[in-house]
Write a protein that binds this DNA or RNA. Structure first.
Length: 421
RNA sequence: GGUAGCGUGUCCGAGCGGCCUAAGGAGCACGCCUCGAAAGCGUGUGAGCGUGAAAGCGUUCCGUGGGUUCAAAUCCCACCGCUACCGCCA
């Protein structure tokens, strides 16, 4: 949720943000109206309650002969309070609804526009010119005995796979390297639950426009998370954090589950777009004034990892219309995928400012000891999809794949993955 | 899954229809005392919302949600969690 005070003091900023996202600026005015009527309802209910409380106490002290008359009056007051409280509840619900519908206020640095309006911040490395027979990641993975899509489909259906042998090893190595880099940077490793309650899912803003992306276990009223961002955010729900010693940083390792509804026919080959994958995700709780700096830090760590994987990539500043509902600004790192002759997203880091924290009621104490809303940020440190870029960029004409040096210590010193057929 | 007990403020813990505006203790903060400290003494000690320039005032919060009542931490119901025992099980 966005800051109500900001909306009251500077509604134009909120309207401008809505326009940049391609959303309805009138939603801001509906929020203001709902806010005003809630405040009126609260004042009315408070006043009646105060009256009832004082009056109720007098009944207890009254003499037996005075009681019947007082009780009649008491009953009437109770009915009035009841009515006022109902009105208060309704007004509160209307305010919450109007409040939640508005996405985070975008950063003034975020490029306006839609999916195609991103700004490329930089390129790192040159797309490699491959010679000889060039294989895509699936062909390479199958040749190495690393990826088995057919059996994935047999066992679980489309968009499922087995990582096997060096494929499984490669993923372990990559994720372990990610965790060790996170540790070196002061992150606390975390293995979270991947099944969460509806309110945990809701808090991150994942049940809004993209609710059909999420797997739900109806029998148990639980959701499978699409990223460990969900449990790492819900982890500190309703808490007042101590950020006096600096940000709190976690690196979550989890499987992630996505329905990929509406992506029929897109990326059907291989493991680029799958229903289940593994990921190491960074998550930071910071003071709002530190959020931009933390965002740069997360981006730098993503770039470091891509560098260690020896991949050519570019960094883009995502446009307002392509931001998630919680994000004010988002940077994606996209690695070159030779057989697609395209850059594909490998990491994504979002600055969610106080938006998620406000939904989850996560605060910290400022210098004066007063609770204030915290800011949250997240970013990818490694995922299964990276295997696509690693295999394709480091392939050799004979179908073998050179292991990036940084991964070798995590693979028993293995330097080259050799085809098994 | 079954049965029983328990869920109170930062922590421990009392309260079991109106005097709860939640006892008492610990912790913490400040002050006094002291050369300094400890001890002792005194004062203060949460969050949300509303209102106000502020101090303040009002209101909500005793696991969560309902209910009974003029009035609920207190009575009733459901749910969640913890603990113990039983059953089942990788």
């Amino acid at each position: 949720m966005i800051d109500l005070r900001l909306v009251r003091d500077n509604p134009d900023a909120a309207r401008a943000s809505q326009l940049a996202r391609g959303a309805d600026p009138a939603a801001v005015d509906r929020l203001l109206a709902a806010d005003a009527s809630r405040r009126a309802a609260v004042a009315a209910a408070d006043e009646l309650r105060a009256e009832q409380k004082t009056f109720g106490r007098s009944i207890g002290k009254a003499s037996p002969e005075d009681r019947p008359a007082l009780l009649t009056r008491g009953k009437a007051l109770a009915a009035e309070v009841d009515e006022a409280e109902s009105a208060e509840t309704v007004a509160q619900a209307e305010l919450t609804a109007a409040h939640k519908i508005i996405d985070n206020v975008v950063s003034t640095d975020t490029p306006p526009g839609g999916e195609q309006d991103y700004v490329v911040l930089k390129h790192v490395g040159e797309p490699k010119v491959l010679t000889g027979k060039v294989r895509d990641h699936l062909e390479l993975g199958e040749g190495l005995g690393a990826i088995d899509m057919e059996r994935g489909a047999k066992v679980s259906g489309a968009r499922f796979y087995f990582l096997k042998g060096v494929g499984a090893q490669l993923q372990f190595a990559m994720l372990n390297l990610a965790i060790s880099r996170a540790l070196a940077n002061g992150f606390t490793p975390m293995i979270p639950p991947v099944l969460v309650k509806p309110e945990s899912m809701e808090g991150g803003g994942f049940l809004g426009a993209h609710a059909d992306e999420v797997y739900k276990l109806a029998n148990d009223d639980l959701y499978l998370v699409g990223t460990s961002e969900v449990p790492m955010l819900a982890y500190h729900a309703d808490e007042i954090l101590d950020l006096s010693a600096g940000p709190i940083r976690y690196a979550g390792w989890s499987s992630c589950f996505r329905r990929e509804a509406g992506s029929y026919g897109k990326d059907t080959k291989g493991i680029i777009r799958v229903h289940q994958f593994d990921k190491v995700e960074m998550f930071s709780y910071v003071r709002p004034e530190e959020a931009d700096q933390e965002h740069q830090r997360l981006l730098a760590m993503e770039e470091e990892m891509l560098g260690l994987m020896e991949l050519p990539y570019r960094v883009i500043d995502t446009a307002a219309g392509d931001l998630g509902s919680s994000a004010a600004r988002k940077f994606d790192c996209e690695a070159w995928v030779p057989t697609q002759e395209a850059y594909r997203e490998l990491t994504s880091t979002s600055n969610c400012t106080t938006y998620q924290a406000r939904r989850m009621n996560i605060r910290y104490r400022d210098e004066n000891g007063k609770p204030q809303m915290a800011a949250t940020l997240n970013g990818t440190l490694a995922t299964t999809r990276w295997i696509v870029a690693i295999l394709e960029n480091h392939q050799q004409p004979d179908g073998s794949v050179v292991v990036p040096a940084a991964l070798r210590p995590f693979m028993g010193g293995l330097e080259v993955l050799e085809p098994t057929r």
